[in-house]
Write a protein that binds this DNA or RNA. Structure first.
Lengths: 126, 126
DNA sequence: TAAGTATTTTAGCAAATACTTAAATAATAG
DNA sequence: CTATTATTTAAGTATTTGCTAAAATACTTA
């Protein structure tokens, strides 16, 4: 017989499937936003940068390149991604640009996580 | 003048740079492990799967493919990555394989996070 | 055993990623 | 203004990623 995309399950619960689809739809924005932030932290170089920024408060691309033994350009491109993702911010002093963790944005992330947890609880109650 | 890899900074603090390098080295294993787990969760499809598994307890590749409107093969490949990364586990019932979150491994992850926090505190005290 | 069902695995490909090199910006000092 | 310094940006390239399609594996049932 031809292969097919969906299985023909005895155990398949169409109510459960439908509920899951709705749950995903309801949390679409949250999941998209959260996954993009996790993807930023899910790179070893960027996680190291975040780790260093958390400890040191702020660092410039130059110092980071030195610490990580990488080219300034490579570091700068990682910093840009994280700045675009709003998890770090900049402070300019003369020609030096200091990067630090954007706490305001991290705070903004908390409701997202709570939202996900709330959805869980809601579902578990049903 | 030629471009150079390291800046010639007046403000550069060689002690700070050295301290940061040592800190990275001390936390190398932790940071590598954590980034690989974050990378797994940092994909929208995989985050959705984790979200669904957390809510439903366990699901088979077939149901997930249905819920996510993806091919079973694609879902299976995501599941394999997460199983290799030890964040999900399997339970086999006849020809159906149920996937669920590997709480034991998630528990194992906590000390890593505490370790990072501890390193921070230690450094902040200095 | 043969056919059907659930899943995995493999190969191939297009898109995304992370780096290098070199050129472009921006700010400062002489 | 010119040279220097710090950083970014752009182009090119190698690697990785995530998908499809098809074949392989594993289990079940007739």
């Amino acid at each position: 017989m031809e292969s097919q995309e969906s299985c023909i399950r005895v155990l398949a619960d169409s109510c459960q499937i439908k509920g899951c689809k709705e749950l995903l739809q309801a949390n679409q924005t949250t999941l998209t936003g959260l996954s993009s932030i996790l993807a930023l932290a899910g790179n070893e170089v960027r996680l190291k940068i975040l780790f260093l920024l958390k400890i040191e408060g702020e660092l410039c691309p130059c110092d980071l390149a030195d610490i990580l033994s990488m080219s300034i350009s490579a570091v700068s491109q990682h910093l840009r991604k994280m700045k675009d993702g709003r998890i770090i911010k900049t402070r300019k002093v003369a020609q030096t640009i200091f990067y630090s963790i954007d706490l305001m944005h991290i705070e903004l992330l908390k409701p997202l996580l709570i939202h996900i947890t709330a959805s869980n609880l809601q579902t578990e109650q049903i």
